[in-house]
């Protein structure tokens, strides 16, 4: 049960990802003594971690600890103040990454078909208009049409793909956005709080979908979550951010009284309910289980 603790202590951080199921090979993501400063405030620092290709990893931790920032660092949207980040062994250019930003639901006044929103993941970054009737003479256009149907089907959104996205439920909207993120066959899928605001049934469905994408499509999935329990059964490992540092390991290694107490530098207790759910108590911010809201 060697849990490696990464802090910005003198001597630098250890590599938390040395014990991994996948073992050797090029990691999907490697952070080396990475630090982030936003608006003069240090968000986290001295973080080293390794996400192996094909893993399903959750990013946990209290509000404002920099979970979304970690995804943005991986995407290259937020620069590092120190340290380095590599995606599939190099800089991020050319790596196909799917991203579901943290967000509120679409306003009901957004009158655009779900299908058109999902399609942005395929060709939304391309300049110029889509040529009308392009599928008659363009093989690429036909391939994109097929891929769109494929991802809509994969996430189970085909039935409501022609409805305006603003009229869909929160769970349906998340499926459409995951379809959008999958469009260009990413090797790395970053999901920022996809379970937020969903009912329990939808939380489980989206968790299962993330797991399926990981196992069946071979995509490395990194999911930021508030509550680990809906995804606990699917996860390979977790990254727990708190106190300006990070711990990475298997859930049963990280979400323990000892590890979290050390991370928070405060007494924390991890309880296991009879149904297997984990409850973190003792710190006002410790929200690995969230109760009913």
């Amino acid at each position: 049960m060697a849990v490696l603790r990464i802090r910005d202590a003198p001597g630098g951080g250890l590599d938390a990802g040395t014990r991994t199921p996948a073992g050797a090979g090029v990691p999907a993501v490697a952070l080396i003594r990475a630090s982030v400063t936003l608006g003069g405030r240090r968000v986290w620092g001295g973080v080293s971690l390794r996400i192996e290709a094909g893993e399903f990893v959750a990013v946990l931790g209290p509000n404002g600890v920099g979970k979304s920032t970690l995804l943005k660092v991986i995407l290259g949207l937020v620069p590092l103040a120190a340290g380095s980040v590599e995606v599939f062994g190099g800089p991020r250019d050319g790596v196909r990454t799917g991203y579901l930003p943290q967000r509120r639901s679409f306003d009901s006044s957004l009158r655009i078909r779900a299908r058109d929103v999902a399609r942005l993941g395929l060709d939304g970054a391309r300049w110029g208009i889509r040529v009308p009737f392009a599928r008659r003479f363009s093989a690429r256009s036909r391939a994109e049409d097929r891929r769109l149907e494929e991802v809509l089907d994969l996430v189970g959104a085909s039935a409501y793909a022609d409805r305006p996205v603003g009229e869909l439920s929160g769970g349906e909207q998340q499926r459409v956005l995951i379809a959008r993120a999958l469009g260009r066959r990413p090797t790395l899928l970053l999901l920022d709080e996809p379970l937020e605001g969903l009912d329990l049934g939808n939380q489980q469905a989206i968790s299962g979908l993330g797991s399926r994408i990981c196992r069946e499509e071979g995509v490395t999935v990194v999911m930021v979550a508030h509550d680990v329990n809906p995804i606990l059964g699917h996860l390979d490992r977790v990254i727990y951010l708190a106190g300006g540092g990070a711990v990475m390991g298997r859930p049963e290694e990280v979400i323990t009284t000892e590890t979290l107490s050390a991370l928070y530098s405060a007494p924390i207790e991890v309880l296991r309910a009879s149904d297997g759910r984990l409850v973190v108590v003792g710190h006002p911010d410790a929200v690995s289980f969230h109760g009913h809201r």
Partner: peptide, 22 residues
């Protein structure tokens, strides 16, 4: 016409659009 698709992406979801290099 040139900017329409990226602009649509940015208008609907600026964060995802930024991650796509827009």
């Amino acid at each position: 016409a040139v900017i329409s698709r990226p602009l649509l992406y940015v208008s609907i979801d600026p964060d995802a659009a930024a991650s796509a290099g827009i």
